[in-house]
């Protein structure tokens, strides 16, 4: 479904992503791993159509990302991005207006599960509550490709389990999830495929279980070995 071909993004002479090649297939959960500044967010933004690659191509269903791919890709950024005037209810209305795959009932149920209130203003939410809202809105889309950039940022340790289970419940044979995080411990148990990035480069990628067997260590240990 998604194919990055030598995708490169340069900013002011600095290369944020360097000749990244990657294929994403349905029915799997991908972990995009790496420390801050490794290029995970830039790569996700290129896939979401928010940033144009300086070189290389990003194809979705064999077409360059654009209007059509945005109908099928749900992206959750690491920063809050909803308009300040909005309430949680308005956010649901906005998604419903623009995304045909948005399930308002699922949104209402996730908002309830996350212990948020529909009438609350977005700008009055704490960072943890804002993070939960982003996840609820993004996962309420029945998108083919779901990109979650640092979904556990700002979430307390108790709520993390809830977020992880919500993410896993959203995964099915008809979609793919790409989750970027430096909190590898939390992702270890749910991922099918791991992609390690460092300073904009692809360091290693492969089936998570195969990696564990081949190297005789967990993804967490592998992460420590690569980045230590």
């Amino acid at each position: 479904m998604l194919e990055c071909q030598e995708a490169t993004k340069k900013y002011m002479g600095r290369t944020a992503v360097d000749r990244m090649s990657l294929k994403v297939e349905k029915g799997r959960i991908y972990a995009l791993l790496g420390p801050n500044g490794s290029g995970k967010t830039t790569l996700m933004k290129m896939v979401a159509g928010l940033v144009k690659p300086s070189e290389g191509k990003i194809l979705y269903d064999k077409q360059p990302v654009g209007v059509e791919s945005k109908k099928k890709i749900a992206y959750m950024s690491t920063e809050p991005f909803y308009y300040n005037y909005m309430t949680i209810s308005d956010v649901g209305g906005y998604y419903k207006d623009f995304f045909k795959d948005f399930d308002l009932n699922k949104y209402v149920s996730l908002i309830k599960k996350m212990k948020l209130r529909m009438q609350d203003k977005v700008k009055s939410l704490s960072s943890g509550m804002a993070a939960k809202l982003k996840i609820a809105a993004t996962l309420s889309r029945n998108a083919e490709l779901i990109l979650l950039d640092e979904p556990l940022n700002g979430i307390d340790i108790i709520a993390r389990e809830q977020i992880i289970s919500t993410i896993v419940e959203s995964a099915n044979e008809g979609n793919a999830l790409v989750i970027s995080s430096h909190l590898v411990d939390e992702l270890e148990k749910i991922i099918d495929y791991a992609v390690f990035m460092k300073e904009g480069n692809l360091v290693m990628q492969g089936d998570a279980e195969a990696m564990r067997e081949e190297r005789g260590m967990s993804i967490v240990d592998l992460y420590k070995r690569i980045y230590a």
Binding site: A48, G49, V67, Y75, F81, Y82, Y83, Y94, F98, F99
Partner: peptide, 13 residues
């Protein structure tokens, strides 16, 4: 600002 995502994530040219 990041609010740009509200517009440019939608399937509109």
């Amino acid at each position: 600002t990041k609010q740009s995502y509200m517009l440019f994530l939608t399937p509109n040219s």
